[in-house]
């Protein structure tokens, strides 16, 4: 046991489990403790259209007549069995809808995270290394402006330029025609160009700033001075000493950032009518489909927690101090 899982990872695992429990508790208690009939808070807008018998049936089905702690136990058991309730808007099980939509969000996010992180890493190291010079000032100014700009607005601007005026890329959606095979993949890729570019820029601006300050901090450490005194050239110092140590904080922030990346993706998706979690949440807000919104929060949280755990494992491999 001691060899396979370090105390560091066990502690992290405990925190993540508590975070998950907190999310589930919020989903459970929020509609039940808000003023008004809990069933109205759970159903949202659909409460107005449901018949009296249907509401009565649901009340019993959801166990709203039981004491709160019993309800919570039932709720937990249902969640574990993949029974996340029904969406009234789509008349489909919430779990199935989310699994389908999540894939499309990941299709956008994975390439964006990789491209954006790589770009931010390279630019950030160059900037940090050339700290205070013109190159650094110009790049920092541009990336700070990007960092301050909402991604979804940038997406609207990109659509205006590339789809309205230049007419070179599709306006919205994921596929424009009933195509098959390779053609379909090509069609999808064309639709991905704008959203992936915007999300990569969003990701790059964040990791650029972290990488830059990380490199600057490492440059101030004593061992860099030692390396210089030993007569090592710039390249050797940069690759052997600076980058290896500057990358460490990036791994943690990479995972923490995953949450903000999801948020960015949600908003950008809406602009492009990309059929992922973002548009799902947007439509659920408009329809006041609360059970679906709760399910989305839970699903996104699980993804973010898993990403964090993954980063912790990577971190504990790279940092020998954490192994025991």
């Amino acid at each position: 046991m001691r060899r396979s899982a370090s105390p560091f990872l066990l502690q992290k695992l405990l925190r993540y489990s508590l975070a998950l429990l907190a999310i589930i508790a919020i989903n459970f208690f929020l509609p039940r403790l808000m003023p008004g009939d809990p069933i109205a808070n759970i159903l949202g807008e659909n409460y107005l259209y449901a018949s009296a018998e249907h509401i009565q049936k649901l009340r019993i089905e959801l166990g709203l007549d039981l004491p709160l702690h019993q309800q919570f136990c039932h709720y937990l058991v249902d969640l574990l069995h993949g029974q996340w309730g029904m969406s009234y808007q789509y008349t489909q099980p919430i779990y199935d809808i989310i699994i389908y939509r999540m894939q499309w969000t990941l299709v956008l996010m994975i390439p964006s995270v990789l491209i954006g992180a790589a770009a931010g890493l390279v630019l950030g190291s160059v900037s940090g290394w050339n700290r205070g010079k013109r190159l650094d000032s110009v790049m920092t100014a541009i990336l700070l402006l990007l960092y301050s700009t909402p991604g979804y607005w940038l997406a609207m601007l990109a659509v205006l330029i590339f789809a309205f005026y230049l007419d070179v890329l599709p306006l919205y959606g994921m596929l424009s025609s009933e195509s098959t095979g390779l053609e379909k993949i090509g069609d999808l890729l064309v639709h991905m160009v704008l959203p992936v570019t915007i999300l990569s820029l969003y990701k790059a601006s964040g990791s650029y700033l972290i990488m830059r300050s990380s490199v600057i901090q490492v440059l101030g450490d004593g061992y860099i001075l030692t390396a210089r005194a030993k007569g090592l050239d710039d390249a050797a110092i940069l690759f052997k000493h600076v980058l290896r140590n500057a990358l460490m904080p990036l791994i943690t922030v990479f995972a923490l950032d995953f949450g903000s990346m999801v948020s960015g993706a949600l908003l950008v998706e809406i602009v492009f009518s990309w059929n992922g979690m973002g548009t799902l949440i947007y439509d659920a807000i408009l329809a006041r489909d609360y059970p679906l919104l709760d399910g989305c929060l839970l699903a996104i949280s699980i993804c973010v927690l898993v990403a964090n755990l993954f980063a912790d494992i990577v971190y504990s491999i790279f940092d020998p101090r954490l192994r025991n």
């Binding site: 923490l256 903000s260 807000i285």
Partner: peptide
């Protein structure tokens, strides 16, 4: 511990739920 927990919960989706309710 509480700070760490709040830090890893994805903020925007949680804010959406709170604001919607």
């Amino acid at each position: 511990g509480a700070t760490d927990i709040v830090l890893i919960i994805p903020a925007l989706p949680l804010m959406i739920i709170l604001a919607a309710h």
